[in-house]
Write a protein that binds this DNA or RNA. Structure first.
Lengths: 270, 270
DNA sequence: CTCCACTGGGTACGTTGTACGCGGTTGCGG
DNA sequence: CCGCAACCGCGTACAACGTACCCAGTGGAG
């Protein structure tokens, strides 16, 4: 993004995107490193210290290479981030996914995606993760869209998946953001809570925000765990999808779903 | 983020967050500019050229001030972005919002939020928009949570709103990302399509991605408009919320909803 | 063998956020 | 009224960033 003026490198213009650019051009000395190795190192750093810590110099140091050597493998940092994002997609297990039980499939996908995001919170700051269409992303699309493909039109499928995906992403983003803010500040969670107390207190005392106050107050008593909250909302989304499906798409009986006890609505004290 | 070492400025440590720091400390010459004015200029630049174009120097130039003058009003660029995000929240009209018709309220909110995001696509790249709790954000929370407050517990309300919010954000994010990629590349839409054709073509010809192929092929024939897609999914989400509400929460009859014709499911050719 | 496309990597530049300090201005205590 | 501390706008300076450019070495094709 820096110093590129408004033109682009010849190398950039030569290929449509990262996935079209061959890793090994052959003819010449054997490369010492590899894209996968560099991507791996970058992910490791981003996991530990955040995406902004994964600078080209830092990554090169982690790999044991010179900074500029990375550019033999990756045209730009932005493209490297794309590589990282797609690598993360590969962590989600969707093997054998149109299994016949669409509800189980989508639940597995949702849990997998959420777990991956929680392992790599920095992915939330990467906006172009969707339209990149890297290999792992494509595999995911194939598997996921395949789950309902037999039951609904492509358009409807896209709509429903957008809803599911939106729910997962939105929820996890919220889960991440406060944790990420705490990590950035370098404080411990309790220190952070203590520091932000005066602000919350002022809002509550002002009396202008009754519902915010209610949230804060009830937050003191034990809530549902994050996991349960997520699963509750997910069940709602799946119910919603079920309603959009023809009756021929009936999922096997709930009891079949590995004996997990049925979710109650949250707010048992209601 | 640069050159800050690992300590933080005294001024930063003095206040919990941006909202606690007073704009006018009084005692001294009158400030020539204002936070609102600076925020406005920054939003204008971000709208026109993307968030990354809104550098401190550029914003200062837009305002007509010296670069470092901005730091008299805002402690850091990150905080300015927070200000910008909250200003955007203020664009969403939620006046008189627990109106009695929760379905109409939530629809209005959803449309408003989506329209705002489409006006300011760069908001998608700001991850910390949620836990910031600026004044406009708080107003939104009050109005939005108030809609279902009478019907469900706080926990359940939070869950349902997370679902709604997740759907809106996820969907709009997808709408934005391709448009944003095109803008970044500086190409026109048709140029961009032409440039990425070889990649899509290779994927299709490989035969490994049947569903991706199906999507691409069907994309050639007229789809539902973005608006209709959004509204279709939104209706599904609202149905889903309706199912979670007690029967006492019945919304007025659909006919009451300003005569909008009933949405069909998409994929009429199915 | 010679070639030259390729390698890793050092140096250097433009751009960024922002710490620091200066001279001028303002409102309050005396 | 005066003086001074607190504020103002802002120029300069610096560290860290992404990366263009260049170079000396290397190894497979002819």
């Amino acid at each position: 993004m820096y110093a590129t003026g408004e033109g682009e490198t010849v190398a950039d213009a030569e290929y449509v995107n990262i996935w079209m650019r061959p890793e090994r051009p052959a003819r010449g000395p054997k490369p010492v490193y590899s894209r996968a190795q560099i991507t791996e190192a970058a992910v490791r750093i981003a996991d530990a210290e955040g995406l902004e810590a994964a600078t080209m110099r830092r990554i090169a140091a982690e790999v044991g290479a010179g900074t500029m050597s990375l550019y033999r493998y990756v045209p730009s940092r932005d493209n490297l981030v794309e590589l990282m994002a797609d690598r993360l997609m590969g962590e989600i297990d969707v093997t054998g996914m149109p299994s016949g039980d669409w509800r189980a499939d989508l639940t597995r996908y949702a849990d997998g995606l959420r777990a991956m995001w929680l392992r790599h919170p920095w992915i939330a700051t990467v906006q172009r993760s969707l339209p990149s269409f890297g290999p792992n992303q494509l595999l995911l699309i194939e598997a996921l869209m395949g789950v309902l493909d037999a039951f609904v039109s492509i358009d409807e499928n896209l709509g429903l998946m957008a809803m599911l995906h939106g729910y997962i992403e939105g929820t996890v983003r919220e889960e991440i953001s406060s944790a990420e803010e705490i990590r950035r500040s370098g404080l411990s969670e309790s220190e952070w809570m203590a520091r932000s107390y005066p602000y919350v207190d002022r809002l509550v005392k002002s009396g202008e925000y009754p519902i915010f106050t209610k949230i804060v107050m009830e937050a003191r008593q034990p809530h549902l765990s994050r996991d349960d909250q997520f699963r509750y909302g997910l069940q709602r989304v799946l119910d919603c999808i079920a309603a959009a499906l023809p009756s021929t798409a009936e999922s096997p009986m709930p009891a079949h779903r590995e004996g997990r006890e049925e979710q109650d609505g949250p707010g048992a004290g209601s």
